[in-house]
Design a protein around this nucleic acid. Structure first.
Length: 413
DNA sequence: CCAAAGAATGGAGATCCACC
DNA sequence: GGTGGATCTCCATTCTTTGG
């Protein structure tokens, strides 16, 4: 027993160990993490059960564990945070917090984007701070945003003079041989972040993992961080709407029920769940049916708009995902397909192909290779829960219904 | 009309598997 | 066992829309 660091890139594991009090630990082991059964059929099933559960929605970059219990998870992005980009990774933060595991999100306050006639700092969408706050309010588990160190403060008026122009204005760690791709460890937010991680590690050492994790939301420096996040949000948000909420509409649930009636007979009735909420939030995506960045944005909308309690049953609004051009009509909805791959058959094809590819439940014992035995046993227990592609998993977890122009799927309860 | 923000797409990298 | 195609995932650029 001791510490175990699950990583997708080993550099990041070394970075976190070396810059926190984990550096003094002897009993510490690093292990490679596998994202899903769909993506890594050979190895995913060998992960411990509680790690699989965090990975169910989406895989973070790092999970730190003590005595076989996760202590916190980390996600890093260097992407420009405009539009829904900052939400792209939100589902994995949600997955972590929903399992009572604190999570850290490292994201640039701004990064330099070169466009045809200009060089600008693209700034992070402040709504991400609000989404994290909502998740913390519900679970009382930290979900903290730290800025990836950059030249933004010093050079916000003249990005072309940024010393790190070639890396979009971002500051990477000086020791690039050992910590390649990791943020500058001397950056003020990184120092704060290491302190917060140390607080969690100390709470967990003193009170045990379960109690420790539940106490950290009240730790002094984490309380300060949460206050700071809220202050930044209020300073930046203004009185306008921000993505992804700009792509949502709110309608009476009766219109949703009428739309669904296009796809079932008169004898069938939609179950109680959808009808139990008067109004419905629809996330309208007029893109080819696909994954990123939409799964993360859908998860964020859940926290921003619809969620009251810890599960999707405790929603104030229904949360619905619609593909195509959506219009509200007098008593229903109209959805028009304006692009390829906006038919419901696209969804079914993707489910079917991952099922054909990943599901080995129809094999006989003598057909199984040695490494397939424990994978088979996992699938006996969980079916294809971990074996579908990420966006199918995330959409069907968060959305009460998914609408297409020529079909729909919905929950009855 | 231009700049900023938003929405959507394309592409790279990793891995697996069928086939030779 | 080498190789090419298919799949999955992540990254972030590019195209589109909006607002002053």
């Amino acid at each position: 027993m001791g510490y175990r660091i699950w990583y997708s890139t080993q550099n990041l594991a070394d970075y976190i160990i070396d810059y926190t009090i984990l550096a003094g630990e002897v009993n510490i082991e690093k292990k490679k993490m596998y994202e899903s059964d769909a993506n890594n059929a050979k190895n995913f099933h060998s992960l411990l059960d509680h790690i699989k559960k965090i990975l169910y929605l989406d895989a973070p970059d790092l999970i730190v564990e003590k005595d076989l219990e996760p202590i916190f998870s980390i996600e890093i992005s260097t992407e420009a945070g405009t539009g829904h980009n900052a939400f792209q990774r939100f589902a994995r933060l949600a997955a972590s917090v929903e399992n009572n595991v604190p999570s850290f999100y490292i994201y640039p306050e701004a990064s330099i984007v070169h466009r045809t006639n200009s060089i600008t700092w693209d700034k992070i969408n402040p709504l991400i701070l609000q989404a994290l706050k909502k998740a913390m309010d519900i679970y009382q588990i930290p979900a903290l945003l730290y800025y990836f160190p950059s030249d933004f403060n010093e050079y916000q008026d003249n990005p072309h003079k940024s010393p790190n122009l070639q890396s979009k204005g971002l500051k990477f760690d000086q020791n690039f041989l050992i910590y390649s791709g990791c943020p500058d460890s001397t950056g003020i937010d990184m120092v704060d972040m290491f302190n917060a991680m140390n607080s969690i590690l100390q709470e967990v050492s003193t009170f045990g993992v379960i109690d420790g994790r539940n106490r950290v939301i009240r730790s002094h420096n984490i309380v300060n961080k949460v206050d700071e996040m809220e202050a930044i949000y209020h300073a930046r948000v203004g009185d306008r709407e921000w993505s992804p909420l700009t792509s949502t509409i709110e309608v009476p649930t009766s219109k949703l029920i009428n739309y669904l009636s296009n796809f079932h007979t008169n004898i069938y009735n939609v179950g109680d769940l959808l009808n139990s909420r008067e109004r419905t939030i629809i996330y309208c995506v007029n893109a080819k049916f696909r994954g990123d960045p939409y799964p993360g944005a859908l998860a964020a909308i859940d926290y921003l708009k619809t969620r009251q309690g810890k599960t999707f049953e405790e929603r104030y609004f229904n949360l619905v995902l619609a593909w195509g051009k959506v219009e509200e009509t007098e008593d229903s909805l109209s959805i028009e397909s304006t692009k390829t791959d906006q038919d419901i058959s696209t969804f079914f094809t993707q489910v079917e192909s991952s099922e054909n590819r990943s599901n080995i439940l129809s094999k006989s014992f003598s057909e199984l290779h040695n490494h397939e035995i424990s994978r088979y046993y996992m699938q006996v227990r969980y079916g294809s829960m971990f074996s579908k592609v990420k966006h199918i998993r995330v959409y069907s977890y968060f959305a009460d219904a998914i609408l297409f122009h020529d079909g729909a799927l919905w929950r009855d309860g």
